[in-house]
Amino acid sequence: MSAAPSPLTAGQQARQRWIGILAEIPLPELEAAAAALPQQPGYTFLRAPEIGSALIRARSGGTGSRFNLGEMTLTRCAVRLDSGLTGFSWVAGRDRRHAELAAVFDALMQDPALSDSLDRTLITPAEQRRDAARHSMAAKAAATRVDFFTLVRGENE
């Protein structure tokens, strides 16, 4: 098992953020971002896009001992750019192309010459759209918040 987690470096935190966002970006946005790259990156697969499953763990009572709830589909990919940078992806679902592009962008995001502009044009806007959708759903849920009044059962009063 993993030992007590050590705090992540700033670089790891940044990569954790963009990998998570790349996993949830709708594919058309990724394709558009790839098409808009000033120069198409050459790359080879270290691990071609592969569809499999992840075993989903949960905890009894939410906080107790672990148990296996079920599985989910997962597609992973690893690429090496011609520049030597490697990129990885793990994306829920079965979309090989999504996994491929997510791995390519993970590699490109490690390139100091590209990371700022990609963050500005791809990662941050996708994050904002995701957060807005979550916020909207949360606000709709909050609109169904209810206060129940308990009526006194005073038959003799």
Partner: peptide
């Protein structure tokens, strides 16, 4: 038919984005 590629961390249901 699926190869198992990973085991997830336990779901943090405390952090559920609640709809109900």
């Amino acid at each position: 038919t699926l190869p198992r590629l990973a085991t997830t961390e336990p779901l943090e249901t405390d952090a559920l984005r609640i709809i109900r």
